[in-house]
């Protein structure tokens, strides 16, 4: 285990929607360059946990620190401007891609750098082409999102997030909306990022990906983090009965 200062530092994170408590006080650290895969049954709070890490959800209490900044503390969010600035450093990839349908692929990628980082048009486009090359979609630079397959859309979404040069990437079930044959191309890009040392937090049901790429697998259930450890331990010898039940259910599905 590395002993650097954690890049994500979470203590006592709580969140509820109305009467429904979604997160019951979560403590968790992510070290730089770590790949953390978060698994657990649906409704266990995985997505909400991830969304609290870039301020898309406002925690009720607890402390979230990212990249050395306090994102939220005791239900208080960072001020708007600082929050926008911090979000540049935390990329997010959504289950439903959320590409901007009125912009071409390359404009989807350059709009952030141009409008937020103030990068010039030509430079942003040059950077975008490098990213498109990385995700294998150079030939689609001027296509509209509607003409892409789901896998291609998600790879563009990853390139869009990378264009802000983030220090941490959050993936919220990035392959759950994809046809099975398109899952591989997206996971491949994510593996490439992991091998380059990107810090990643991934909510997924792709257990092979978790086994192969994760440094830490986190199991959530009922809004709590019930177990965390290296994948070979979690998958072969989990301590918690709930983890065993969940893994049995997901690994034996037909």
């Amino acid at each position: 285990m590395k002993t650097q200062k954690p890049i994500v530092h979470i203590r006592g994170l709580r969140k509820s929607f109305g009467d429904h408590v979604v997160l019951h006080g979560i403590d968790f650290d992510v070290q730089p360059s770590q790949v953390v895969v978060i698994i657990g049954p649906s409704g266990s709070g995985k997505s909400t946990f991830l969304r609290c890490c870039n301020g898309l959800e406002q925690p009720d209490s607890g402390r979230v620190e990212i990249c050395g900044h306090t994102l939220s503390d005791g239900g208080q969010m960072l001020a708007d401007q600082a929050l926008n600035h911090l979000r540049e450093q935390v990329g997010m990839v959504f289950q439903s891609f959320n590409l901007f349908p009125h912009l071409s692929v390359i404009d989807n990628i350059t709009v952030g750098p141009r409008k937020v980082r103030g990068v010039s048009g030509p430079q942003a486009e040059a950077e975008a082409m490098v990213l498109l090359d990385k995700v294998g979609l150079v030939q689609k630079a001027h296509a509209m999102p509607a003409s892409l397959s789901g896998g291609q859309k998600q790879r563009v979404a990853i390139a869009r997030a990378l264009a802000m040069q983030p220090q941490v990437m959050l993936f919220d079930e990035p392959t759950s909306a994809l046809d099975p044959e398109l899952v591989g191309e997206v996971l491949q890009v994510m593996k490439l990022l992991a091998s380059e040392g990107m810090t990643m937090m991934v909510v997924t049901h792709e257990m092979d990906f978790a086994r192969e790429v994760a440094d830490v697998v986190v199991v959530m259930d009922g809004g709590a983090l019930i177990e965390a450890g290296p994948p070979d331990i979690i998958f072969t010898n989990p301590k918690q009965a709930r983890t065993r039940d969940f893994l049995r259910a997901i690994l034996t599905r037909v």
């Binding site: 898309l56 926008n84 979000r87 990329g91 959504f94 959320n98 937020v116």
Partner: peptide, 16 residues
């Protein structure tokens, strides 16, 4: 307009 559009825009650091 789908809520995800605003979320995606905010997540690349855009102001409201």
């Amino acid at each position: 307009i789908d809520r995800g559009q605003m979320e995606a825009a905010r997540s690349v650091g855009m102001s409201y």
